[in-house]
Write a protein that binds this DNA or RNA. Structure first.
Lengths: 147, 147
DNA sequence: GTAATTGCAAATACTTTGCCACGTA
DNA sequence: TACGTGGCAAAGTATTTGCAATTAC
């Protein structure tokens, strides 16, 4: 099993969750796609479609989000997106408003200092941020895909 | 009439939209609240509740977003949020995950340079970003409001 | 006069829950 | 054994659309 999957399942165990097949497949699926995914995408993905019901995936996502193992994101679509939180790793995203493609941005995030200032000035706890860039990708701009 | 409302309605007219009472009230409502609002909030706000149907507000929001007068935001809630785009003004937001309060952040946005790099490297068109900070506000942390 | 806009009601889309069966610890 | 989990189906919430009537230009 992929070491990050193993490590994440271990975090789930620490948090008091039971080690089920569905849990492992969900984490593996999120990890191998390496981008935020919707409930519908997850529930119909190869690993999970055969494994369990959509309601189960939903409840798993809820539990994992509650324990800080995954995070729920907005991203403008009607459906919510979920992304695996790997300790020490932070991602911002670049999203095409035409075809809906989503990719993680590699560049170092320029927001940490502002985040620190906000933490100090406002007294907010458990502060984190989300940064997304939206635009029309070159393919869509060329008309290769309709939007 | 508030000059920003007037100016924004004028932009709508330029874009080919008709000047209706509902349009003016919608823009005035968004402006006076000065924070992103949901369709439900807007449709039930004092100015709009008496003015028109929720479907009308929905379609107005759609049209305005299509013409770049307002923008649709994610913000983690199930409902979509909408914010007025005033030329030359950019806001990032600080959101309490416990009570749901939303406030605009005054500090200059630290993302412009990265945005420029992304524009150049990826060839994305019409690029813009959204930056939100989430956390638990001091009131909620003190237990004044349940979460 | 003509096309955009609106209201009402019905249809969708996505999420969330109830209840009882099942599996992990 | 006990309690977290899972399946199925039904309910809930927010969005989106059809169509005939109305209104801005």
């Amino acid at each position: 099993m992929n070491p990050v999957v193993k490590q994440t399942v271990e975090r789930c165990r620490m948090a008091g969750l039971r080690r089920t097949k569905a849990l492992e497949e969900l984490i593996a699926t999120l990890l191998e796609h390496d981008r935020p995914m919707t409930l519908a995408e997850l529930a119909s993905s190869k690993r999970l479609a055969e494994q369990c019901d959509k309601a189960t995936v939903f409840r798993l996502l809820q539990r994992l989000a509650g324990h800080g193992i995954i995070r729920r994101l907005g991203l403008h679509e009607r459906a919510a997106y979920f992304t695996l939180l790997v300790p020490g790793k932070h991602s911002d995203y670049l999203i095409c408003t035409s075809c809906g493609s989503i990719e993680a941005i590699q560049a170092p995030c320029p927001v940490h200092q502002l985040e620190e200032e906000i933490r100090v000035k406002t007294g907010f706890r458990n502060l984190y941020h989300e940064l997304e860039f939206f635009g029309v990708c070159p393919k869509c701009a060329r008309g290769e895909r309709a939007g």
